[in-house]
Design a protein around this nucleic acid. Structure first.
Lengths: 198, 198
DNA sequence: TTGTGTATATTCACTGGTTAGTATACATAC
DNA sequence: GTATGTATACTAACCAGTGAATATACACAA
């Protein structure tokens, strides 16, 4: 049965997404992904030239939706810059309490493939995080922050740190702690009246 | 040739440490570890009951030396609390610039085994990070910080975030950025005169 | 309207290699 | 002569990737 093709490719990526995210890259076989997508391995290899290619496609598919979600959380929060950034962490904490949550797919892939520095999937992950950093930097610059790049990187460090720590301890409250730290850093950069954090 | 035994077990752990850290858990076979340790797989299985057991031993062996190193960097730095904590990040940045550096073994293992939440290695990693958090908390409490646990967790988030980010981008300067953020947070908690960070 | 060629899409069956773990035997020390 | 420790050789499963064949849709010719 020919002629689905685009939907087929999409189905494969969805299956890969589900399995790679929940089980890890090297743990999941191409056969498993094909089975989950409801087709044979040989068909999968018609659409993707290798497993590595599929891993890259898996992360590419997560790029835009992920960024859009962060921007949405930021936009929806009512208040100043510190409040809006903190809202990202609060929403992330809510996500992290779902049982199927398993951290950040980009970071977990880069950790698992750390022995292959040039792997396409790692480049895609790095580009994704850079996009987020750029968005933060631009946003901070518009608000008159003196060193917007530095602040953007500090927030990113807290964000990725909370992915790692919450995954290890399975305790989403660390994300709220990260949000408070982010607020303190932003307020300091804004030159707001000092307050003991809390 | 019998009777080495303790040294043999140690040699196996050293081989596992070297291979698991640089290549990842699932990528490395038990055969490879045995070969690197200079013995057969059957001998390895005399000393460890399974690969999972060996993975746990690998992380256990990293626990104390790792903590000792952080304490040493902290103790050796001359200055107040913010300077001493920032020194940890500066030393870490130096380590991260070495070509064989591949992030934090505990975090990378927890990322790779995220689909096995009860795995012994993950529990060992969580305990390791808790020990570090406790040490920071105690240190901060001794310095009269109002909420030492919160500050300890914030520093830990920056630390683990820098492991993740530097591994992804292969840019150790993020660790110095994390150190500056840590300094800002500590100064805020101490109630020091406000300063735009930098 | 009907026949036919071709690119697209899919399947079955296979290969060569790897892997965690084990059954059995052997060697050494005390 | 028994505990301990090591090696040889094996199993049963898994896995990334491929060779060869086949089925469909569609363009175009008759």
């Amino acid at each position: 049965m020919p002629r689905p093709s685009e939907p087929t490719r999409e189905r494969i990526i969805q299956a890969a997404n589900s399995l790679f995210y929940s089980e890890g890259i090297r743990r999941v076989s191409v056969d498993e992904i094909a089975a989950k997508a409801g087709l044979t391995k040989r068909t999968l290899y018609y659409h993707f030239k290798s497993k590595d290619d599929l891993v890259a496609a898996y992360l590419s598919a997560r790029d835009q939706p992920n960024l859009a979600l962060f921007r949405k959380w930021f936009a929806e929060a009512e208040g100043g810059l510190p409040v809006k950034v903190e809202a990202i962490f609060k929403n992330l904490a809510r996500s992290a309490r779902h049982p199927k949550w398993k951290g950040c797919g980009f970071l977990r892939t880069s950790a698992e493939l750390a022995n292959m520095p040039g792997h396409p999937a790692i480049r895609i992950g790095a580009a994704h995080k850079k996009k987020f950093e750029d968005w933060l930097r631009t946003t901070f610059a518009e608000q008159g922050i003196a060193d917007p790049l530095k602040l953007a990187r500090q927030i990113l460090l807290l964000l990725d740190g909370s992915f790692a720590v919450v995954l290890l301890h399975r305790d989403a409250s660390y994300m709220e702690t990260a949000g408070e730290a982010a607020r303190t850093l932003i307020e300091t950069a804004l030159g707001k009246p000092r307050r003991k954090q809390g």
